[in-house]
């Protein structure tokens, strides 16, 4: 189980998270939606200790992430797969070496077993036989699938997806959605998915949480979010610009959002 408990995070004067609380139960897929720059990526980076909270805490399987020793944090990270928005593949390595990278930390795996696991992970994302290619030779959608293969190769208990379908065409987005569902079924993982894509959110999510003004505005099942009476939530899921304009507190401007993304990245 992953618990965000009253999380606060600021970058300089910009308060990004202001009391963000959310519980993700074992086995479920939680989708977090919200406007750009409202701190969705910032929130999930706390789960793997890429960021430390200013106040509050993230608890994973009963362990407070920010209180872990270096070795304990490494052990926690080996249970979590993270899929980045732009895949973040190591561009100087082949696809095989990218997917094998996390596996090479483990002392109990020989090269033969690593090769088998890499091949299996690439098959799961429908990219068999691409081991010797370089990331620069792949399309955006294929790179995201390799990023997914790299994350699932370590056989994680948790999967964190940071905008996995952003920038992809609808068909490729649907492929990624299908792969996320397949990953959940094959590995039984608990997932958190950050997305702006409501069609994707409805397809893969068990529950959906909307992040607004640094905290959760509403959390509920897919049907509850679809039928939400909260004007802010309705406006977001229906893509109505007036909802954003009429909000009590405006989310970050585009320039501010970029600044936050930069600081978080």
């Amino acid at each position: 189980m992953i618990e965000f408990q009253d999380l606060h995070k600021a970058f300089g004067p910009k308060k990004v998270l202001q009391g963000f609380s959310l519980t993700v139960n074992d086995g479920e897929t939680m989708v977090i939606i919200g406007y750009s720059g409202t701190g969705k990526s910032v929130a999930i980076k706390h789960v793997v200790g890429l960021l430390d909270p200013d106040a509050g805490q993230v608890v994973v399987d009963g362990e407070v992430v920010s209180a872990l020793t270096h070795d304990a944090l490494m052990t926690l990270r080996s249970r979590i797969g993270f899929v980045f928005q732009f895949a973040a593949l190591f561009d100087s390595m082949t696809i095989h070496d990218n997917v094998a990278f996390g596996l090479r930390r483990r002392r109990d795996l020989g090269e033969g077993e690593i090769r088998d696991r890499v091949a299996h992970a690439l098959e799961l994302v429908d990219l068999p036989g691409t081991e010797e290619r370089m990331p620069g030779e792949l399309s955006g959608g294929m790179r995201k699938r390799v990023g997914l293969a790299r994350a699932i190769a370590i056989q994680p208990k948790y999967m964190l997806y940071d905008e996995p379908t952003t920038g992809l065409d609808p068909v490729t987005s649907a492929v990624i959605d299908r792969l996320m569902v397949r990953t959940r079924e094959a590995l039984g993982v608990t997932s958190i998915v950050i997305t702006h894509d409501m069609r994707s959110a409805y397809t893969i999510g068990d529950r959906i949480a909307m992040l607004y003004d640094g905290r959760v505005r509403q959390v509920g099942t897919v049907d509850e979010i679809r039928r939400s009476t909260d004007p802010m939530v309705r406006g977001f899921v229906e893509g109505d610009p007036s909802a954003k304009e009429s909000g009590d507190t405006a989310p970050l401007s585009a320039a501010e959002a970029l600044e936050v993304e930069g600081a978080a990245g």
Binding site: G49, A88, L89, F101, R150, G265
Partner: peptide, 17 residues
Amino acid sequence: TMRVTEQVDAMETLAYS
């Protein structure tokens, strides 16, 4: 370049320092 393209973050999430 690795930092701004999140490759360093990816390395950390794969339990590397």
